[in-house]
């Protein structure tokens, strides 16, 4: 591989990383739309429904931040596994914020699709 190709590859990967990071909070809130989940379930939901895979440790500080912002609340629930699990659920403010973010995402995504449409036509 030539040097400039290698550097382009790195820039492209970096861009993808930034893109994923930017969507992480939206993805976590969206995973909670249908009901309460604990940390590992949120991670698994994100892995199965999208390829938004993050280092596992990252999600817990983020959840704690979303809680401090009042967007999610948490409760401890006893489990069959023998240890309690910390479940997260959206607060009314969190649902409201998620709707707003989803709207912004939809507008952004449709304008990007329009811009990218010519790429699909001619080869």
């Amino acid at each position: 591989m030539k040097a400039h190709e290698a550097s382009e590859q790195i820039t492209g990967d970096k861009w993808e990383v930034q893109l994923r990071k930017g969507c992480l909070e939206l993805a976590i809130l969206a995973a909670l739309w249908d009901g309460k989940l604990y940390g590992l379930e949120i991670l698994r939901r994100m892995e199965s429904d999208s390829d938004l895979i993050v280092t596992e440790g990252t999600i817990y500080p983020l959840l704690s931040r979303l809680k401090a912002l009042g967007l999610v609340r948490s409760e401890w629930v006893e489990s069959d596994a023998g240890h309690p699990r910390k479940y997260y659920a959206l607060t009314p403010a969190g649902r409201h914020r998620l709707r707003e973010m989803a709207g912004m995402w939809a507008r952004f995504s449709s304008s990007m699709s329009k811009l990218l449409a010519p790429l699909g036509k001619g080869k």
Binding site: T55, E56, G57, P61, S64, R65, A68
Partner: peptide, 24 residues
């Protein structure tokens, strides 16, 4: 190993906490 080092994790908690507090 998947969680990352405890030091790294603690730093993330502290900076995330800082951001959330400051936004409030």
């Amino acid at each position: 190993a998947a969680l990352g080092s405890p030091e790294d994790l603690a730093r993330q908690y502290i900076t995330d906490n800082l951001l959330a507090r400051a936004e409030v």
